[in-house]
Design a protein around this nucleic acid. Structure first.
Length: 948
RNA sequence: GCCGGAGUGGCGGAAUUGGUAUACGCGCACGACUCAAAAUCGUGUCUCGAAAGGGAUGAGGGUUCAAGUCCCUCCUCCGGCACCA
């Protein structure tokens, strides 16, 4: 047997696979298709990262398995090559970006090929190739024609170092995502893409795709859909429009809060505000633009006038506040301190009125309303009495009902709730000397069947906390004595489970916390004719009543699509004085990037393209007059927004992809990528795809049927890998030392695929040893010779369990446990004297997607002429899955005391007698009576003994 | 602050969803082979205990015959959003 020479073997099979084109996807195939996709890399000068290897290997395993399962597989690769690092390098060195890109992609390609990924290299694409970006420009023009691309003067985030406008999502904590420089604000005309027009579908259509739940949640949060109402408040002859999700709380409005931006706009159109107000606005706006924008405290200033609440004509003061944002909703809100945490905090600080309009509601599901019985409304109290001596709470145990309650009662005549409570305490318990601690918030509505009165009750209950002063008691009536017994219960035993009150959860949280706003839905009070309505129905009713309208808003903003840089797709528009912005005619696409001397953006913020007059000056395609090209370029996200479509037909010159190809391949069946792309790339490409779908240009409304995500690989010690720290692992070195198969296997074995894991070069030796053992196993192979059948059937049971395990682990991306299962199988193989060749080949097939080179070589050594990659995936033979012996764990009182071996599916009584016969177990059972036995067939038996 | 995810040996991590906690791998220790080393193979490796046994899955409580797994309270770490009305 030869030695395991990984570099020889790996090069050999990479060449063979390429020669035989085994990984090229086939058009017009009868097989079912599978389209597996990884995010195409940005070819940086640093070379391939081990993180790329992790994601690519995972999808490589999946696609290799699919091929073996008989699918026509598309697993393509390309380069997302526009972007800043290349351009910055060009500025520094004067080298052409295209040249830099060529060098970097050559290096990346070499690296990827050295790992043996089963990419279809014949479809390789590059976003910086004019043949590719012709279609990026073409798609942009379709959007322009549909009015989705528009120009807008706006304050942009400007990075003074990179000299580039940044999208909101590229600003992290007030700094440039790339270089960390503090971002400035600048006024600039920008091209925008109206992604907000698709906001609703981007949200709701998430229901139709199979993305990891956290990916969906993140996208939904990002889109930030919220349904509410716009309501207008009158101020003299003007109106202030507010947006609220809680129109049901309109009766609880005690002030209006407007953003400084809105207030400033009033000043701009002539509002005579005081100097103090002007200064407040100026300062607040300045604070907000400052780096970081971390508002510590809510502040505000009275605007000096009132507005009219449209629902009841009440005057409410208008405040200018720092906690309302100009670009959210209408830039103004109604202040409802009773039902909004922020308004509550603000009202407390500035002594504004707090007026409840909604109360919590609980239905007692243990004593629900009985149909046919009368429904009686009652205002009542709930008295919670603490004995400070032992911190116990007074409770009533009802004699005729299975209830445990606090002291309860109705409010009579014109007494206050506290007076009513004190009276009830005396009547029901006799305790005379009690002291009010505090009223626990507002009333709570509960609905239950009062069996002792034979009525359905809707109660508005006021919970009140008292303290016992001393234990002096007077007599209570015989009626009361007959009804319940008084007792004291530990505070810690007062829970929603131990008490009958359905509103117990609310009461407990009010005891724990002094005072807060009630922010949930409930039942309306103090709301005129809307009293008694529930929040959900009241929202629409009140909005209608005041002539407002229900609207939906989104956090998602339109996409700033212009960059004032060189290394991007030129935006294919021409500006003509007479005709405005005119698309470059289709026949003139692509608008190619011209050669320039200097790649630096100009200091006035224009792209370097603007300096090339021969390129800029053109004739207008519409009127033939003098015109200028748009000199802004597209952001890096453009080329990646549709690249998965191009793979289906990467060389097409007449369309971005042939309809037939799109029909066959889309949607992408499985897309794996980084979590960091969830709200940017994935959302952007979904938007482009939906647009293309609306234009009838693609056959599906969603691009990716399934999206999963890998965890980061951290440097040793758990910190981020970074070039500056010098802790980056170079895959080339690992491949030279241990081989590509070891690298692949290690990255799959290192830990859960979706979790961040620190790299450990030390640990690679483990998988390398494993592969060497597999290699040596060849010498044990006996072709069909008979091997002791008993040991063999045990081995085959294990083998077929492994087929199941590895297959399902791959589907669930639990690669680490799949590898460990194969290691267990290997350890078992080593114990065997001989190995049946069939069984060994099954093992090789299971391992082949993980370590394709070594398995292909061994397969070849075993005498096969065809390639392992083309072999069918092993199928579990259920007849071999039948175990004959089960070891049943014996527990006594829940503690493991031994084990008995019995035939599978043995009855409990048989197992029991075996247990009782077992000497080692007898000492545990002896003398004691077995009160109960729990038997889980083939697994466990637990004997519960008397006593103990 | 809110929403997610997680806390298990010296380390990376397993645990058929409530049924033998610590699989698999690394590391470490001892042994075999060797003049020696490497490689390889074997044995051991949560903890207290001489043993019999006991105790451990971030902390505390609960449910259960049985809890890493379910419920409550708290602590820590990692991600995302951050006054979104």
């Amino acid at each position: 047997m030869k030695n395991y020479d990984h570099s020889k073997i790996e090069k050999k099979w990479q060449k063979e696979w390429a020669k035989e084109k085994v990984f090229e996807a086939i058009e017009n195939s009868d097989k079912p298709k599978f389209y597996g996709l990884i995010e195409f890399p940005y070819p940086s000068g640093a070379g391939l990262h081990v993180g790329h290897v992790r994601s690519n290997t995972a999808m490589d395993i999946i696609t290799r398995k699919r091929r073996m399962e008989g699918f026509n597989v598309l697993y393509p690769i390309g380069w997302d090559a526009f972007g800043l690092p290349t351009e910055n390098y060009a500025i520094k060195t004067g080298k052409q970006p295209a040249l830099i890109t060529k060098e970097n992609t050559d290096n990346f390609r070499r690296q990827l090929q050295s790992i043996g990924f089963s990419f279809d290299w014949s479809r390789e694409i590059n976003t910086t190739d004019p043949k590719y970006y012709k279609w990026t420009q073409w798609i942009f023009l379709q959007m322009f024609k549909q009015g989705l691309a528009y120009k807008k003067k706006m304050t942009i985030n400007w990075c003074p170092k990179d000299k580039i406008g940044l999208a909101n999502e590229e600003v992290i904590a007030g700094c440039c995502e790339r270089c960390g420089t503090a971002v400035e604000k600048r006024e600039k005309e920008q091209w925008m893409l109206a992604i907000t027009k698709y906001a609703d579908r981007l949200d709701t259509d998430l229901d139709t795709v199979d993305y990891l739940p956290q990916i969906k949640t993140q996208q939904r949060n990002w889109i930030g859909k919220s349904e509410g109402a716009e309501i207008e408040f009158q101020v003299d002859k003007e109106k202030i429009k507010v947006f609220t999700t809680r129109p049901d709380t309109l009766f609880g409005v005690t002030f209006l809060a407007v953003s400084p931006e809105l207030a400033q706009s009033w000043i701009d159109i002539g509002w005579q505000a005081s100097e103090t107000i002007k200064q407040y606005i100026k300062k607040t706006l300045a604070d907000r633009l400052a780096d970081g924008f971390d508002m510590k405290e809510k502040t505000g200033i009275s605007a000096g006038f009132d507005a009219i609440n449209p629902v009841n004509g009440e005057k409410v003061p208008v405040w200018i506040v720092n906690y309302v944002l100009g670009d959210v909703g209408t830039g103004a809100i109604m202040g409802v301190p009773a039902h909004d945490e922020r308004d509550f905090e603000f009202a407390k600080k500035y002594n504004l009125e707090i007026k409840p309009a909604v109360i919590p509601r609980r239905i007692d599901h243990n004593n629900p309303h009985v149909s046919g019985k009368e429904v009686i409304f009652r205002k009542g109290i709930m008295a919670i009495i603490v004995n400070p001596k032992d911190n116990k709470i007074l409770c009533l145990k009802w004699k005729k009902q299975p209830w445990t309650t606090f002291v309860m009662g109705g409010i009579e005549g014109d007494e206050t709730s506290v007076e009513a409570a004190i009276r009830e305490i005396r009547e029901e318990t006799g305790y005379k000397n009690i002291k009010l601690v505090r009223v626990l918030g507002g009333v709570i509505q509960t609905e239950f069947f009062a069996a002792h009165k034979d009525i359905n009750r809707i109660a508005h209950t006021q919970p009140i906390l008292f303290e016992l002063e001393n234990e002096e008691r007077s007599d209570v009536s015989s009626d009361e004595l007959a009804a319940y017994e008084v007792f004291w219960r530990d505070m810690k035993d007062i829970t929603p489970e131990t008490m009958t009150h359905a509103e117990m959860d609310i009461v407990l949280s009010r005891i724990a916390c002094e005072e807060k706003s009630f922010n949930e839905n409930g039942v309306l009070i103090n709301s005129g004719q809307f009293d008694g309505l529930q929040s959900e129905e009241a929202k629409k009713a009140i909005t209608d009543f005041v002539g407002g309208k229900m609207v939906t808003t989104y956090k998602l903003r339109d996409w700033v699509f212009s960059r004032q840089r060189y290394w991007g797709e030129p935006i294919p528009l021409i500006h003509c004085e007479a005709c405005g912005y005119v698309p470059v005619p289709e026949k003139d696409l692509p608008v190619e990037l011209p050669q320039v001397e200097k790649y630096e953006p100009t200091d006035n913020g224009e792209s370097p393209l603007s300096a090339i007059s021969s390129w800029v000056n053109v004739t207008c395609p519409t009127c033939g007059g003098q015109a200028k090209r748009e000199t802004d370029t597209m952001p890096q996200w453009a080329g990646s927004s549709w690249y998965y479509l191009r793979y289906t037909d990467s060389k097409n010159d007449t369309e971005f992809a042939d309809k037939k190809n799109l029909q066959h391949w889309t949607p992408v069946d499985w897309y794996n990528g980084g979590m960091e792309h969830t709200t940017l790339h994935v959302l952007y490409s979904r938007f482009w795809h939906k647009f293309l779908f609306d234009q009838g240009l693609v056959p599906t409304s969603e691009p990716y049927a399934k999206r999963t995500s890998h965890g980061l690989i951290l440097a040793e010690g758990g910190v981020k890998m970074s070039k500056s720290v010098g802790n980056v692992v170079n895959p080339d070195e690992i491949i030279t030392l241990y081989g590509a198969d070891s690298l692949r296997l290690y990255e799959m074995f290192m830990g859960p695929f979706d979790q961040a894991i620190p790299w450990s070069t030390e640990n690679i030796i483990g998988v390398r040893r494993f592969l060497e053992k597999v290699w040596r196993l060849q010498s044990k192979v006996e072709s069909q010779k008979s091997i002791k059948s008993e040991t063999n059937s045990r081995f085959e049971l294990l083998l077929h369990q492994m087929i199941q395990k590895v297959s399902s682990d791959i589907e669930g991306m639990k690669f680490n446990t799949a590898v460990s299962a194969m290691m267990i199988l290997l350890n078992e193989c080593e114990k065997q004297e001989n190995l049946n060749q069939n069984n060994f080949e099954i093992f090789l097939k299971l391992l082949s997607p993980f370590a394709p080179h070594i398995t292909e070589e061994i397969w070849n050594e075993l005498g096969h002429k065809n390639m392992l990659v083309l072999e069918p995936w092993p199928v579990t033979d259920v007849t071999k899955l039948v175990a004959t012996i089960a070891s049943v764990v014996v527990q006594v009182n829940g503690k493991v005391r031994g084990q008995v071996k019995v035939p599978v599916d043995t009855a409990e009584s048989v197992v029991m007698s075996k247990v009782q016969a077992e000497e080692t177990l007898q000492k545990w059972i002896r003398d004691k009576k077995i009160t109960k036995v729990f038997y889980v067939p083939n697994r466990l038996i637990n004997l519960v003994l008397e006593g103990d």
